[in-house]
């Protein structure tokens, strides 16, 4: 536990050492959805709510875009922070010495994950305030929406752990983050209904957890859907959560063993 808290504290100290990172958590939730909101307004013309009701299935095009972009931003920051945590140490030349320290190696990664969770909590609080004050978002089923948001935690962090191990192998964090986040950007209906994509793209989109996370949250927050309506989406999220968490743990254990066997911990 001491190793875990030390790793978490270190990550938080580094985070607060660079004020730009702190500012970004406040700025991005306001800035990022704006591009799609203004585009929707331009495409729709003089009566955007009526047009949006036809195009997106809800007149609340602002809420529709806010929910999609918030969840995508969460996945994106997870890939950049937890996913790149070990690679950053590798590049900085500290991974090998930390790996040799008499403490559980997993603490390094899980400490980064915990620190990231603290930052995400803050980001969600800021985003909720910004969405309400700047964009006038009204959530129809707040309790269900909050729980559905939390139902994404296992798969998002499972993906982060899996990704962190793969990046240490491939030694190309930037390119891999760009590639993986692009898959979610393209297929998951962040700003549009999945139904407008060609059939094969819809199939890919419906297989990914982010699509179900976004759908479920939109149903609860914008249409006031109850547990019965969102049950299929929730089941997808939980199955993905279990699968990615197990894969994440296994990938980390495997990477740890192979790096030590091959002696490649310190190479980049």
């Amino acid at each position: 536990m001491r190793a875990l808290s030390a790793a978490m504290l270190r990550e938080l100290l580094i985070f607060f050492r660079y004020p730009g990172w702190v500012v970004s958590v406040v700025v991005w939730p306001v800035l990022f959805p704006a591009a799609y909101i203004f585009l929707a307004r331009a495409l729709a013309g003089p009566d955007p709510r009526a047009q949006a009701a036809q195009a997106l299935g809800t007149p609340d095009y602002v809420g529709y875009i806010l929910i999609g972009t918030l969840l995508w931003m969460w996945v994106n920051t997870t890939l950049w922070t937890i996913g790149s945590a070990l690679r950053k140490e590798q590049l900085g030349g500290t991974l090998e010495s930390n790996w040799l320290a008499p403490q559980p190696r997993a603490a390094l990664l899980f400490g980064a994950a915990l620190a990231h969770a603290v930052v995400v909590l803050w980001m969600v609080a800021v985003a909720t305030a910004a969405f309400t004050l700047v964009y006038g978002l009204k959530v129809r089923a707040p309790a269900e929406s909050a729980l559905l948001f939390l139902a994404n935690v296992p798969w998002v962090y499972g993906l982060g752990l899996l990704f962190a191990s793969l990046v240490v192998w491939a030694k190309e964090a930037n390119g891999m983050v760009h590639a993986v986040r692009s898959v979610f950007l393209i297929f998951c209906g962040m700003s549009f209904p999945v139904a407008v994509m060609p059939g094969w793209m819809q199939a890919v989109g419906r297989a990914l957890p982010l699509t179900h996370g976004i759908d479920a949250l939109r149903m609860a927050a914008l249409a006031g859907a109850g547990w019965r309506e969102v049950a299929p989406e929730l089941a997808w999220l939980l199955v993905w959560g279990a699968a990615l968490s197990v894969c994440g743990f296994l990938a980390f254990a495997f990477t740890d063993r192979r790096m030590r066997e091959l002696g490649t911990t310190g190479t980049y």
């Binding site: 331009a42 950007l185 209906g189 700003s191 549009f192 994509m197």
Partner: peptide
């Protein structure tokens, strides 16, 4: 480009966005 493109397609299935 994809999210913007499909957002456009949702609003203008025929490819011509009247609002724009």
């Amino acid at each position: 480009l994809v999210p913007a493109y499909f957002l456009g397609r949702a609003f203008a299935p025929a490819g011509d966005a009247a609002g724009m």
